[in-house]
Amino acid sequence: MPTSIVEVRNLTKRFGEFTAVDGVSFEIRQGEILGLLGPNGAGKTTTIQMLLGLITPTAGSIRMFGLDLATHRETILGQINFSSTYISMPYSLTVEENLWVVAKLYGLTNIPRHIDEVVKKLEMEEFRSKVTRKLSSGQMTRLTLAKAILTEPKVLFLDEPTASLDPDIAHKTRHLLKEVRRSAGLSMLYTSHNMREMEEMSDRIIFLQRGKIVTQGTAQEIMARFGQSDLEDVFLKIAREK
């Protein structure tokens, strides 16, 4: 049984009276892709932001690589990275300059080699010298993915990583992520509103609704549990439950 890289226990976040995440517990094993599914406002992004140390939990614990995030922030954050459609990169810098800054921030050595590799992997050669402001949304998504992979993390948090990519690049990106997972034993937490993608990418899925885990398991287990043949139907059923 692969060891757990991420262990989340009774994670809770309250903003005043509103509970965004309510006693969530899960783990991510070495090399596993865990899908986080749920309607808007279910608590997915808040959960990821707590895992990234950007929001302090109200209760519960987050451990990664056997260390507590609250007390080993620097060590843990140096070994993880993230990509999200909701973030950007400095617009006035070129793609290459942005990647250089990220590499330096994470203390990489031989930075040009790392940049060349990631640029090649994500087919970014044609726009590596372009100012970020001039990138298309698809190119921008590839850049945020590149910055996430560049630092050779052990865990990757991906919040809708293919949301603005065309089917061809989205397919290549998924292929790349699976390849990175296979070659580097990378663990991932993955969110998407594309059910086929979730099914394709995730080893296990956690379904969040109003901050709580309502079901979890493989896509097949979840579909069987809800008597549906499609993950999207499960999503609709759960999302529409009062």
């Binding site: 993230f82 990169m89 990220v102």
Partner: peptide, 18 residues
């Protein structure tokens, strides 16, 4: 402010930067 305008704060503070 430059980091806010560039929506780059999350990138920075989700990194090991103190």
């Amino acid at each position: 402010l430059e980091e806010i305008w560039a929506r780059n704060l999350m990138n920075l503070f989700a990194s090991p930067l103190k």
